[in-house]
Simulated scan of single mutants.
Amino acid sequence: MNFSWLSDYLPLLVWGAGQTIALLVISVALGFPLAIGVALMRLSRFRGLRGLANGYCTFLRGTPLLVQLWLFYYGIGSLLPMVPGLRGSFLWPVLSEGFFFAAVAFTLNYAAYEAEVLRGAPLAVPKGEIEAARAFGMPPGKVLRRVWLPRAIRTALPTIAGGVVLQLKATPLAFSVTVMDLYAVAYKIRQDTLLVYEPLIVVTVFFVLVAVLIAQVFRRIEAQIPIRR
C-alpha cells in the first residue's frame, strides 16, 4: 500500500469531503420538511392531494436516482440558458453548477422515500392518544403539532437514521454531473497516480466514520427527545 500521495492531495480531499457533507446536509435539511408535507398530503381526505403525493412518491421512488440526476442536469440544465436574462442574473453562478442540480435531485428523492416512512408512522400512533387530545379540546392543528407528529417522528427515528445513511451513500453519484465531491477527488487521484485501491480506501474510511457519527447522533436524539403532550 502506498499512501505517500496523501499529504499532497489533502487539501483537495478536505474540499471533496466538504462537498459530500454539504450535499448530505442540504438534501436532508430541505427534504425532511418536504417529506412531512408529502406524507400529510398522502394521509389527506382530499383525493386530489393524495393523488398528487402518490404520483410524486411513485415516480421518484420508482426511477433510479442517477436517471433523475441526469434529467435535472442534462435536461433542465440545458434549457436554463434559454431563459431570457438568466445568464446575466446573480442566480446564474449557482444555476450553472452541477452542485445545484445534484442538491435538487437528492432533496426531492430523499423527500419521496422519507414521505413513505412518515406516512406509516402516524398510523402507528395509538388512537387513544389522539382521542385524548381531542377530548381536551385541542383543535386539529394543535393535535397534529403537539401529539400526532412528534410521536410519529420519534417512532420513525431509527428508520429516518437509516435513510440519512443511505442518502450519504448516494452522494458519490454527484460525480457524474461534475461535482468535485470526495469520490471525484479519489477518481482524480487514481488518474494522477495510477493507484486504484488506496484512494478508495480513504473514501471508504470517511463514509464509515460519517455513518457511525450519524447513527450515534440519532441514538442520542431518540434517547433525549421528549414527547410533548
Rank of each mutant, 00 (worst) to 15 (best):
N2K: 01
F3Y: 12
S7H: 05
V14M: 07
G18D: 14
Q19D: 12
L23M: 08
L23I: 07
V25S: 03
S27W: 07
V28P: 14
G31L: 13
A35I: 03
R42E: 12
R45G: 15
R47W: 13
L49F: 08
N54F: 13
G55K: 05
G55C: 08
C57D: 09
T58H: 10
F59P: 06
R61T: 10
T63G: 02
L65G: 13
W70K: 07
L71N: 02
F72M: 14
L79Q: 11
L80K: 04
F90Q: 11
W92H: 09
L95G: 09
F100W: 06
A102I: 14
N109C: 11
A111W: 10
A111S: 11
Y113L: 10
R119S: 07
R119V: 04
P126T: 02
P126K: 00
K127L: 15
A132T: 00
G137S: 07
P140V: 13
P140M: 11
K142R: 05
V147T: 07
I160Q: 04
L166M: 15
A170K: 00
A170P: 14
P172F: 03
L173G: 03
A174M: 01
F175P: 06
F175D: 13
Y183E: 15
K188Q: 15
K188Y: 14
D192L: 11
Y197W: 14
F207H: 01
V208G: 08
V212S: 04
L213K: 05
R220M: 15
E222Y: 04
A223L: 04
Q224T: 10
